[in-house]
Design a protein around this nucleic acid. Sequence first.
DNA 1: TTGAACGTTTACGTTAACGTAAAGCAGGCG
DNA 2: CGCCTGCTTTACGTTAACGTAAACGTTCAA
Lengths: 126, 126
Amino acid sequence: MASHHQYSISDLAREFDITTRTIRYYEESGMLCPYRDGQTRLYNEADRVKLKLILRGKRLGFSLSESRELIEMYDPDSDNRHQINALLDKIHKRREQLEAQLHDIQLMQEELDEAEAKCMEAFNDD
Amino acid sequence: MASHHQYSISDLAREFDITTRTIRYYEESGMLCPYRDGQTRLYNEADRVKLKLILRGKRLGFSLSESRELIEMYDPDSDNRHQINALLDKIHKRREQLEAQLHDIQLMQEELDEAEAKCMEAFNDD
DNA sequence: TTGAACGTTTACGTTAACGTAAAGCAGGCG
DNA sequence: CGCCTGCTTTACGTTAACGTAAACGTTCAA
């Protein structure tokens, strides 16, 4: 059912507005392992999604290794109970972090409201 | 109206769970300039709030200089229209960033729900 | 009075996340 | 054929945000 797209490294670089160096660096760090046609890297849809997740993690302030942990949760290689419990624990902690972050964002948004109002006010005082 | 508290550098370090080096580094970067009693730094409530803002910015994935920009918006030194317009522009852009970030968080929360469900499922399959 | 417990400065070290430059191979085109 | 475009590798450089160590000055309780 479709979506057997192939992407070159610069296709992805263009789409996500990053450099090819960045993509290769993510591969160096073991976060991507594209198929090779000879020397040339060929990326499929799964690779593309992974890259997207990495970049979203980055926007959320996660380090690469933190993002890797998150992404590894979706890999179907969890085989024993101990692993699964560790994963559930990670999920729980991550969720707490996100909620704290949500709170931070709400606070900052309120303050942006105030700051904006203050600017407007200063604008009318002449 | 009180709140003329004084804090030592390690008071703040303890409260926010960071090192004194970190606090001094923020001063080096021009984000804090505490009162001095001789050589010794003495921080007041305003300094404490500033530090809190810096750390919140950090949790939100902002660099120090980005946080500085945000904090400077609250300093009452904006004197001309050009400045104010620039500030309003910054506020607008920051708000867009925050909304994108909110979206990212929501997505990630949904995925955490799914991941958790998947784990639970694997847990029941025995 | 001495020795912890706090503070200070100066200065070099470290890590993550790339940037950048050099040198080279593969394919298409005028 | 020569050149351009796009890919590759290797490898050293860079910046932010501190860590860490050395050497020194207070203060205060035993």
